[in-house]
Computed example of a mutant assay.
Amino acid sequence: MSNQPGSPTAESIDRSPQEPAGRTGYAPGTPVLAVLALGWLAAMLWSTREAIHSAAVGLTAITLSAFALPGVISAALVAGAAVALAASELAARRLGDRAALRFAAAIGAGMLVGLGTALAINLTYADNATTNTIAGTSAAAAVIGGALAGARTPGPVGAVVTAALGTLLFVVLFSQARDPLFDLFGAGDSQASLVGAAKWVSRTESLLGGLVAGLLAFGYLTWARRRAVRHAPDATAPRWPAYLLAGAGPGLFLLLTEVIIRIGGRTLLDLAGALSEADAVAQTSMGTSRIDNGIWVLFVGALTTVVLFGRTLGPAPRDDDPQDPAES
């Protein structure tokens, strides 16, 4: 059948109306990611509120707020990115995959998440300077996450969000195994044994967290590639840089969280560190540990995805392979 003007072509029949032409990638499951990330953010806000309210008014509440700040900021960053990715994907399907439209939808969604987070903190936490610091820094983190999700490569962004969310959940689950691991690594009554055991526990957490991040990022990109081929059989498969970025993404998120904390939460950290010499040492030690953890997760996650991607590649064709007689 000839393709006359106005007649439907095979390409237009196969393309779903929900997937307009010109799309640069696919990020499946973004609504589910958004719901999970918002649920994680709500859980972090609730647990932080309970910890602060259960503490004695004054010095202890300030210390607990400083310790809880990284968890809230990382959750807000991931939630902002997840909701923004879902919004940008919806805009791309409905209105066309234009870079400006995608970025505007992502920024708007990130701002909504940031505003909602700040309102939830101000309405449910005690009204003081500490609360305002947590609210403002969390709102900024959500907006930054939304801006990152506005990239024109939704597949790798979805992989980063999935892996980052899984890594944050793994850290909470791993906390249940810290005490047995301390005993396993020889923690005793001496200070040296406790420091040595803490170092090995931290390294184990970082290595396993990076492995989880790499596995989740690779799995999501594999799923996204299969969905893309289903909608467009001639779609170009992601190359190794996309896998490298997806695997390194959760570590980059952790390091970005630390930057946001050092800038937006500086007042709270300084206030907590000024309470006593022990508090100052604890804040410095925790900050160094978070940076080390982010670096380890970055490199282990990136290495895991690249290795897994390499195992999917077949052998390259050789020039001296015999030709089929029928082809000559």
Results as ranks from 00 to 15, higher is better:
G150E: 06
L313V: 13
G58P: 06
L184F: 15
T284S: 13
A232S: 13
L64Y: 07
V201R: 05
I52G: 03
G150N: 07
R290T: 05
A42F: 07
V300E: 10
R23A: 10
Q176G: 06
F67R: 06
G186V: 14
L255S: 07
E50D: 13
E19S: 06
R262A: 15
D234M: 14
V306Q: 02
P233F: 03
G96M: 03
I144G: 01
T153M: 08
A187Y: 02
D127W: 07
W40S: 12
P17D: 09
T24V: 15
G188A: 10
V72N: 08
T204W: 05
G158S: 10
R225E: 13
Q4E: 11
A109C: 09
I73C: 05
A105R: 00
A302R: 00
E11F: 03
I260Y: 01
L85E: 09
R311C: 12
T124C: 04
E50M: 12
L165P: 10
G145R: 01
V306K: 01
G196K: 01
V201M: 08
G146T: 11
Y125T: 05
P241D: 13
M44K: 12
A246L: 08
L308V: 02
A104C: 08
G166C: 01
P250A: 03
T288S: 13
A177T: 13
L38H: 00
S202P: 04
A68I: 01
R266F: 05
L36K: 04
T63G: 15
